[in-house]
Amino acid sequence: MPHIKRTTPAMSRRLKTAFAAVLVALTGAVAAQPANATDARGAKPTIVLVHGAWADASGWNGVITRLRNDGYRVLAPGNPLRGLASDAAYLKGLLATLDGPIVLVGHSYGGSVVTNAAGDDPDVKALVYVSAIIPDQGESVFDLSTKYAGSKIGDNTITTVPLASGDADVYVRTENFADIFSADLPRSTSALLVATQRPITYGALTEPSGKPAWKTVPSWALIPRDDQVIPLQAQRFMTARAKSHTVEVAGSHVAMISRPGTVTQLIETAARAAN
């Protein structure tokens, strides 16, 4: 029979330390923080970043790095992109697991999701919209993105894949992606984005929005003037209606990738105001 070594208190402490290190490596949620960091009970809110259509959470990487360096806890969940109500319910469930104040950030279609997920959550202290859809009740992404001329998303630039449910997945065509989505990024970076793009359902783009959180939660917004997905005039209309504290910059639809420092600065401004 093999000899089983008895675990001593010192060994137990080492095991706990090692296990904690594994959790950090797997989740990235609790890592070594700079000296100015605060824990979940401290003053700094948790920043939750929600990506939009034809993207994934990695688009926030530059922003995440900067926020973490400044002592913020950050989460960037995968947005299902299956339907507005169901996507918002998923995010709402995630927010319910967090303690303390939250700043909720949405990019593109993610703006619709955060607008619907935050309304009844008292912990959400600020909303930040990055080249985003900011719907009122009853409006859809399609309604707002076509309200004014200028979007290059259309029948000649998308591909649809039928689904068994009767809905369809919508992709941006490879040959159009860089010019529409990420014109201010290197072509090599745009090639990676198009290869890894996550489709959104047609239903999600046409589903009416529910009660908007921006009517009760203060908001900030960043508008890239060269956006080819959501027209500039549409973004100005939505941010003015929401009374968002707004910054305009030169840049494409993916400002969080091409202008991560500017986006981070706006999020931290909202976070400080939320406190």
Rank of each mutant, 00 (worst) to 15 (best):
I4Y: 07
K5N: 11
T7G: 00
P9E: 12
L15A: 15
L15T: 14
A20H: 08
A21W: 06
T27R: 05
Q33C: 09
T38F: 01
K44D: 12
T46Q: 10
V50P: 03
H51Y: 06
A53I: 04
A55S: 13
A55W: 07
A57K: 07
S58P: 02
N61D: 15
N61W: 04
N61L: 08
T65D: 14
T65E: 15
R66M: 09
N69E: 14
Y72R: 11
L75W: 11
L81H: 03
L81N: 12
R82E: 12
G83D: 13
S86T: 15
Y90F: 15
K92L: 02
L94Y: 10
L95M: 13
A96M: 04
D99S: 14
D99W: 03
G100I: 06
P101Q: 10
V103P: 02
G110N: 03
G110F: 11
N116R: 01
D120Q: 14
D121C: 05
K125Q: 14
L127E: 06
V128H: 01
V128L: 06
E139C: 05
V141F: 13
F142A: 09
T146V: 00
Y148P: 05
S151T: 15
G154F: 04
T157E: 03
T157R: 01
T160H: 00
V161P: 00
V161R: 15
S165L: 10
G166W: 08
V170D: 03
R173Y: 01
E175I: 01
E175L: 01
F177N: 03
R187I: 11
R187E: 12
T189E: 15
V194N: 11
R198S: 14
A204V: 03
A204N: 10
L205T: 05
K215W: 00
K215T: 12
V217S: 07
A221K: 03
A221Q: 06
A221F: 13
D227N: 07
Q228M: 15
V229R: 05
I230L: 10
P231S: 10
Q235C: 00
Q235Y: 00
R241H: 14
A242P: 01
A242M: 06
V249F: 04
A255T: 03
S258M: 04
G261T: 13
G261Q: 13
A271I: 08
R272W: 00
